[in-house]
Design a protein around this nucleic acid. Sequence first.
RNA 1: GCCGACGUAGCUCAGCGGUAGAGCAACGGUUUCGUAAACCGUAGGCCGUGGGUUCAAAUCCCACCGUCGGCUCCA
Length: 643
Amino acid sequence: MVTVELPDGSKKTVDKGSTCGDLAMSISQGLFRKAVGGLINGEIRDLSTPLEDQDKVKILTAEDPESYELLRHSTAHVMAQAVQRVFPQAKIAIGPTIQDGFYYDFEIPDHPLSSDDLKAIEAEMKKIASEDQKLVRYCIPDVDKQINEFKSQGEKFKAELLQEHRDHNPTLYLMLDKEGKNVWNDLCRGPHLPSTKFIKAFKLMKVSGSYWRGDEKKEQLQRIYATAWWKESDLADYLHRLEEAERRDHRKLSKQLDLFTVHDEVGPGLIFWHPNLATVRAEIEDFWREEHRKRGYQFVFTPHIAHEKLYEISGHLENYAENMYAAMTIDEEPYRVKPMNCPGHIMIYKSRLHSYRDLPLRFAELGTVYRYERSGVLHGMLRVRGFTQDDSHIFCRPDQLEEEVAGIIDLIAFLMETFGYKFKAYLATKPEKALGTDEEWAFAIECLEKAMKSRNLEYEVDEGGGAFYAPKIDFKLFDAIGREWQGPTVQVDLNLPDRFDVTYVGEDGNKHKAVMVHRAVLGSMERFCGGLIEHYAGAFPTWLAPEQVAVLPIADRHQEYAKEVVDSLRAKLLRVKYDDRSETIKYKIREAQLEQIPYMLVIGDKEVESKTVAPRHRRSGDMKAMPLQQFVDEIEKEIKERR
RNA sequence: GCCGACGUAGCUCAGCGGUAGAGCAACGGUUUCGUAAACCGUAGGCCGUGGGUUCAAAUCCCACCGUCGGCUCCA
C-alpha cells in the first residue's frame, strides 16, 4: 500500500502500483471521467503515472490552468500525426507548447505549406481527435535500435534528439487506435492526455519559417503555430482577444489618427513623427525632464557621429560592430554614427577631475542612436533602425550605489504608474561569459537586491541572465489588455569604467574607480510611444492627447461666440480643434469621436445666449452645459494630474 | 539575412489575359442643422520598380524594392 497526500492535506491510501488515474477513480467516478493528468509533487504527469509513497498528488482536470500544458502538448502530437498523414514525406522536428498554444516544426521537402494545407491538416486533426486514440508512454528499451528505426524512417531530427538524450531514460509516446494498434509515435518526454478525445477546440494559426535548433546554418524548417483550448467558447474568446490586439495595432491606428510614417525613399526602420504623435512625444518628454530635474539629474547633449577611436576604447567596434553602420570618412579619418550614448556621457565625465564630493553625477539625455537591424525584424515603431533613448548614466561611489538604484526604482515606479502600466522586476545575474571579477558582480548584485528590498519591490531572479558586462534589473510591463512589454532596465556597468578609466579622487587623495549605472526608463521614444498607442488603443489621456478639445458650432450664427471660446481655451495653452465647416453637428461629433479627442464643446443657441459650453466626453458622452470657466478648471485639473 | 504571404486612388477594398472600378476622404456648390455619416457635382491611378511571355499584361513568369507573419536579435 502507498499513502499519498491530496491538495486539501488529507491522506489517501491506495494499492501499491496504483496510478494517478486509479487514485482519481477511488475518489469519485466523476473525477475520473474529467481527469486528464496529475500534479505529482508539483510536476505535471500522465494520468497513468504510478504513485509512490508520500507523493503529494492533485488530479488535474480542465479546470486547472496546468492542464493546458497537457492539452496543447497532446494537440501538437495530433497535429504532427495529421501532417504526416497529409504529407507522408514530412519529417518531424520539435513541438513545444508556448503561451496560448503550441507549434511544431517540420521538414517537408519541396512543399511550402499554404493556408489550404492548414485547412486539410485541421480536418485531419479533427478526425484523429474523434478516433479516441490513446496516448501511451513507452520507455525505450534499446536506444540504438530505436535510433536506427528513426533513421530508417528518415526521421533524422528525432534520431539526433534521441542520441542526445540517450542517458535520460528517453520515452516514446505511442498513439493507439481502438484496436490497440500503434498508429503513430513521437519521441517525447511527455506528459500527455490519456486520449485524443479531450481535444475539441483548436485552430491552426499560421505557418512560418524556422531553423532546426534555431540555427541559421542548419536545415530550414516549416513551423505551424496553433492554439488549443478545452472549450469552443474559450477558443472563441482567445480569437476575440487577438482581434482586439489587432484593433489596437499601432500601425493601423497610425493610419486612422495620422501618427507616423516610414518612407521607401528614406529607408525602412526610420520613423517620421507627424504632428499628432509629435505632440504626444513632446508632452512625454516635458514630463520626463520635469521628473528628472526633481531627482537631481543633469541634462546633456552629445554628437551623433564620433571618431572610431571612441568606439575602439569603448569596445563597441569589437563587440557590437554588426549593429553599427559602416564608417564614413571625414578628413581621411573614420567616423561612426553613434549606436549608444554611454561613451559620450563618459567623455563629459572625464573632461575634468572629480572629487568624491562631486558624486553622484547623473547625466541624462534623450539621445538618438542608430543601429543596424536586419530587415526581417523591423516592425512599425517597435523595432526600428533609428531611435531616441531616454538614456542616463549615473557615476557614483560604491557606497552610493544602493541608494542610487533605489532612486531609479522610485522614478521607474512613478513613471510607469502615471502611464497606467503594471510591472514586474527581474534580477539578472552573472552569465557564463562575463567581464569583471566575481567580487564586483557579487557587490553590484547585492546593491541591486538591497535597493529593491528597501522599496518593497518584489522581483524574480533570472539566473545567468545578465549582460556580459553588467548585472541588471529588467522590468516587464503589462498593458491595458494584459500583454507583456519590455520595460525599464537598470544596469551596473562593469566594463566601461575600466576601458575609459573612469575615476574620482577619494577622501584619501588617491584615484578610485567610479561605479557607472546605465539606465533607461521608457527605453526608446519610438518603442514606448508605439506601445502607448496600443495600451491606450489610440485614445490618449487628456494630458497627452494631440487635440484636447474640439469646439463645434452648430450653425454659422454660432461661430462668433465659438471663436471666442476657442481663443480663450488656446490662451490657456489647451490644444483646440475648431471645426467651423458647414457640416451637421452629428457629423462633426462623429469625426471628433473617431479622432479620439477627449472633449467636444457643442455651441448652439442656448450656449451663445447663456455664455456656457455643452461638453461631450468621448467616452461618457453628453455632459451638462456649464460656464466656460468651469470647464477650463476641470480640464486643467485633469491635465495637471495626468489622469 | 532566411521561409511564407502580400503591394490597385489619401484610406478600405473589388477587378485576376481584352478600354482601370466602388465606398469613404479631398475639392466645388447647395443646406444652417442640438450629440457617431445632409444632398448634388468635380477631380483623383506609369495597378510597388525593372525585365520577360503574348496580337494584347493590373492579371502569367523572373528579378529587385517594400510591407506583413515568423526564425534570430533587441531599446
